[in-house]
Design a protein around this nucleic acid. Structure first.
Length: 249
DNA sequence: AAGGTGACCAACCGCGGTTTT
DNA sequence: AAAAACCGCGGTTGGTCACCT
């Protein structure tokens, strides 16, 4: 499913994340936390925008993220909550541990929405006598045009039924077992040959960024500075490659 | 076998809200 | 108080796979 690689005007990479990028991001966030998404990619050695990093972390690299098919129970919860609160994916996600809002949103659009409209139409079509299935169009473009129309209609309906609810999406920073996530996503464990990332700017970040064995939550990092504004390093001395592998395995 | 279409999913974009300066 | 920076959310797009004709 590789998206074509491309770079935008400012040289930031777009498109599919590579295993290497995942490792860098996972390692960085697990070690230092996400104290500033916009700055993070620079220090993590990634040519990505902060938004992209945040999305990747929240949806795929975060510990305990659940991938794969939805259980019947999960489907029911989504259907029920969606009927109650509409497209509040982050709220719905909060009720489904391990599922990201993006994932739930995709799941809704690809399967639950159809089911939902089918159930709706079976309950009303006995009177109307015709199908309102919007997936009959012959081309993707037409289908999307139809979906846009459906969405507009849904919005009108939702505006009458939405109740205010606070977003409670969790900002992460549990830091365990990131490497397992990366591994499971890419289906392989690659030997790390380039674990030490030299960071180019500033006294703070001239410390090399070391991907170690992905430490625990307590290691999450909040930058601190001394009285002179000089960064106080949380880093331990650089490990040798052998030490690194030992700690990793 | 090849082309068309639907389904799925990863990722980008724009906007609004919140926090910081 | 205002502007800028940042964050999070929801909508949308585009690539790939699988199935059908």
């Amino acid at each position: 499913m590789a998206r074509t690689r491309c770079y935008d005007k400012s040289g930031l990479k777009k498109g599919t994340w590579t295993p290497d990028e995942d490792r860098k991001l996972a390692a960085y966030v697990s070690k230092y936390g996400c104290w500033n998404w916009r700055q993070l990619p620079k220090f993590a050695g990634l040519a990505r925008c902060g938004k992209s990093c945040r999305l990747r972390w929240l949806n795929y690299l975060q510990p305990n993220i659940k991938r794969g098919s939805y259980t019947k129970e999960e489907d029911e919860i989504i259907m029920k909550l969606h009927a109650e609160i509409g497209n509040k994916w982050s709220v719905i996600a909060a009720h489904l541990p391990g599922r990201s809002d993006n994932d739930i949103k995709n799941h809704w659009h690809t399967s639950l929405k159809k089911r939902s409209t089918q159930e709706y139409s079976t309950s009303t079509d006995s009177k109307k006598g015709s199908s309102n299935n919007n997936y009959q169009s012959s081309s993707r473009k037409k289908r999307r045009e139809n979906e846009t129309q459906v969405n507009a209609n849904e919005k009108i309906n939702e505006s009458f039924q939405l109740s205010p609810m606070q977003s409670c999406s969790t900002e992460v920073s549990s830091c365990a077992t990131i490497d397992q996530n990366v591994e499971s996503i890419h289906g392989e464990r690659e030997v790390f040959q380039e674990e030490i990332f030299e960071v180019s700017s500033g006294s703070f970040w001239t410390e090399p960024f070391l991907v170690d064995s992905f430490s625990t939550a307590s290691d999450c990092f909040v930058p601190s500075f001394d009285d002179h504004g000089v960064f106080v390093s949380p880093f331990s001395p650089i490990m040798s490659y052998d030490e690194l592998l030992c700690s990793y395995y």
